[in-house]
Design a protein around this nucleic acid. Structure first.
Length: 420
RNA sequence: GGAGAGAUGGCUGAGCGGUUGAAAGCACCGGUCUUGAAAACCGGCAACGGGGCAACUCGUUCGUGAGUUCGAAUCUCACUCUCUCCGCCA
């Protein structure tokens, strides 16, 4: 949610920012609504003040056993006006909120301008593509050949975009998650959380998924929605609260399943387990003071990169351009891991600074010298577990189709060198 | 699922339908005292919004939403949540 004061003071600048994000100029409409609302509010409040003073007077007169009928009839007159203005104010306020709640965050100055992923820029890269003496297979070829990855059974149970992992692959998924959580909690200062996977619409509004992106979500009825990422419950932990400054920075992590309808992705990545309705992810979330959020984004990115480095997986970091960034973010880095089977880089983590955009929506503030200040929120995958499993399969495959186990994961496999 | 109790400021907790935005205590901030700290004492301390250059002022908010009333934290209704007991249960 945007600060209306900023729009009042910088309407043209605001429109330019929105244009970068692919929106039409709208500040005129916003300011007109804002003006009418405020004018209405001023008149309304004066009437309320008048009514209150009459009412107080009535109370006084009655306690003195005097006649108050003329005061009472005056209040009666005011009442109609009050009701009409109240209605008008509510309507204008709702119109305003409808518009504001659907506008994306403003991009940071350091974000490259652009309209789609073609315009993303490379921030850095690490490692190099592994060489193979044979043609590397895709993860689903490897998984199916090993008999440990099964799409038919999953689709029998649940339809398309689900997968069944068996035995050592199921264990690998668990080992990856454990490794990530251990690292983030032991070395990176994150507190592990076990969170609800169903949340209320209010919560999703706060983090920005609603009202605009309802079609991307699964709902379980009765105002229960399946989380598309642990970012939702983690970021909203302190919604409608005023934190003490010594609670910041707050760094939390959680390993959860994520549920996404993939509404706009028909026909995309239909083979394999790259794009599923359900996947697991270790999520990182930070709440920080405004002046620290830029540094925190770099820190978070490094925490995510650290996992890939430990796994010796080659990757590059992309700075998303204004047109490719998500709704909430003022800046986003995507980490793209190299997948030799696909012969492509694929997103395995996305780290975003949301500034105070989400904090305004969910009303999370902290107290500083008697002032209440919106926190800045950041979220990042550290990492997507399913895609990490894919990356390990494709990068650690051997000619015979067996998979080497990365050094740091061996402890979860009785120090075995290979999966089978 | 059945029966009962409750929801008030950062926390605990008072609150006859009429200066109650709300007592008191704790916490917190400032000050006095002290070599320093503690204790004691004094003072301050809700949020959001409108108007104003400002001092300031007005409005809204006592779980949420409706209603009664000239006036609601206080009365009525609905909903949500929490707690206790019983039943069921991973």
């Amino acid at each position: 949610m945007h600060n209306i004061n900023f729009i009042r003071e910088n309407p043209t600048e605001f429109d330019n920012y929105m244009k970068q994000r692919g929106e039409h100029p709208i500040s005129n409409k916003i300011l007109e609504l804002d003006k009418v609302k405020r004018e209405t509010q001023t008149v309304l409040q004066n009437l309320l003040a008048e009514r209150n003073s009459f009412s107080k007077n009535i109370g006084k007169l009655k306690s003195e056993n005097k006649d108050a009928s003329s005061e009472m009839s005056k209040v009666d007159e005011i009442k109609n006006k009050i009701n009409n203005l109240k209605e008008l104010e509510t309507i204008k306020d709702e119109e305003l909120k409808t518009i504001l709640s659907r506008l994306p965050n403003i991009a940071d100055k350091t974000v490259p301008l652009g309209s789609n992923e073609e315009d993303n820029t490379k921030y850095r890269e690490w490692g190099e593509k592994p060489g193979f003496e044979f043609k590397p297979k895709t993860h689903f070829e490897l998984g199916e050949d090993l008999g440990l990855m099964n799409f038919e059974t999953a689709s029998k149970l649940s339809g398309s975009r689900f997968v069944l992992l068996k035995n050592q692959l199921s264990k690998l998924e668990r080992a990856i998650a454990n490794y990530m959580l251990d690292k983030h909690t032991n070395d990176n200062g994150y507190i592990e959380m076990h969170v609800p996977y169903l949340v209320k619409a209010d919560t999703l509004y706060g983090t920005g998924q609603l009202p605009k992106f309802a079609e991307d979500l699964f709902t379980a009825g009765d105002d229960h929605w399946l989380i598309p990422t642990a970012e939702i419950p983690l970021t909203a932990l302190h919604s409608n609260e005023i934190l003490n400054i010594n609670q910041l920075p707050m760094r939390v992590t959680s390993y959860t399943p994520c549920f996404r309808s993939e509404a706009g992705a028909a026909g995309k990545d239909t083979r394999g387990m790259l794009r599923q309705h359900q996947f697991t992810k270790v999520e990182l979330v930070s709440l920080v003071e405004p002046e620290h959020s830029k540094d925190e984004l770099e820190r978070m990115l490094s925490c995510a990169e650290g996992i890939l480095q430990d796994l010796h997986l080659h990757y590059r970091v992309m700075t998303l351009c204004t047109g490719d960034m998500g709704f909430n973010a003022n800046k986003t880095y995507d980490i793209e891991v190299w997948l030799p089977g696909e012969d492509k880089y694929r997103e395995i983590s996305s780290c975003s600074n949301c500034g105070d955009f989400q904090a305004r929506r969910m009303n999370t503030r902290y107290k500083l010298e008697n002032k209440n200040i919106f926190v800045h929120t950041l979220n990042g995958s550290g990492l997507a577990v399913g895609r990490t499993l894919i990356a390990i399969l494709e990068n650690y495959q051997m000619k015979d189709g067996n998979i080497k186990i990365p050094e740091v994961l061996k402890k979860y496999f009785n120090n075995s060198d290979t999966l089978i």
